[in-house]
């Protein structure tokens, strides 16, 4: 599949330029290719590259956000008449913990949907209600987004609540406090940390493959 590399690179450029029309054109040139190949070899690498660019300073958050929005729509279009892209997927949910800053959650939600994952969005929620929802819906992977330090520290309490459940959920944290303090995720008892989309997608693959225990 050598041509996918070129298409992925063109897709990345379209995403960085926030050029939805060009992104759709690239997709149109691949209309005879298997949907799973397009997602795995064009859309996901392009998004990962944009996300990595943010983490090392080559791209801006607005580009990550707009890229994720564009890809989410592309994948929705691709999968309109198809089965879910990946089977099996862990049952995933995302939430903003006791904080009023929702952009990070929205970006990650869009990135995951753009990569073909289904993710339940719990929105902005407090720790007690979140633990209850995780239990009720049988969530296996919980993504927790925070912006304020106090919210990041509430993950400890959340883990205490989740720890009492029979089936342990994997808690992945992200957001500014964890970028500025790379040891904080361990201090609050999270199972893993992803600074952004580029770190998260490989992490989800590892979890799906049972490599994060």
């Amino acid at each position: 599949m050598p041509h996918y590399k070129l298409q992925a690179s063109e897709m990345e450029q379209a995403l960085l330029a926030v050029d939805r029309v060009k992104a759709e054109k690239i997709l149109n040139t691949l209309s005879d290719e298997p949907v799973l190949d397009i997602v795995e070899h064009v859309i996901v690498p392009a998004m990962e590259s944009v996300g990595a660019g943010w983490e090392d300073g080559r791209a801006a958050l607005s580009q990550v956000y707009m890229s994720a929005r564009i890809c989410e729509r592309l994948v929705d279009r691709l999968t309109l008449f198809h089965e879910p892209l990946r089977q099996p997927q862990p049952k995933m949910a995302i939430a903003v913990l006791e904080d009023y800053h929702l952009l990070g959650k929205s970006i990650i939600h869009s990135v995951l949907r753009g990569a073909g994952y289904e993710v339940v969005d719990f929105g902005r929620i407090d720790a007690d209600a979140l633990a209850q929802k995780v239990k009720e819906e049988g969530i296996e992977v919980l993504l927790v987004s925070t912006l304020m330090l106090r919210a990041a520290q509430r993950v400890s309490y959340l883990q205490d609540l989740l720890g009492s459940q029979t089936s342990k959920v994997k808690v992945i944290v992200g957001g500014a406090p964890f970028r500025f303090d790379r040891e904080l995720w361990k201090a609050v008892g999270a199972d893993a940390c992803a600074a952004g989309a580029a770190e998260l997608l490989p992490l989800i693959k590892r979890i799906t493959g049972g490599q994060l225990s």
């Binding site: 801006a60 958050l61 607005s62």
Partner: peptide, 9 residues
């Protein structure tokens, strides 16, 4: 900040 928007923007 270039963390949020690109320099061009």
């Amino acid at each position: 900040s270039t963390t949020v928007i690109s320099r061009d923007h």
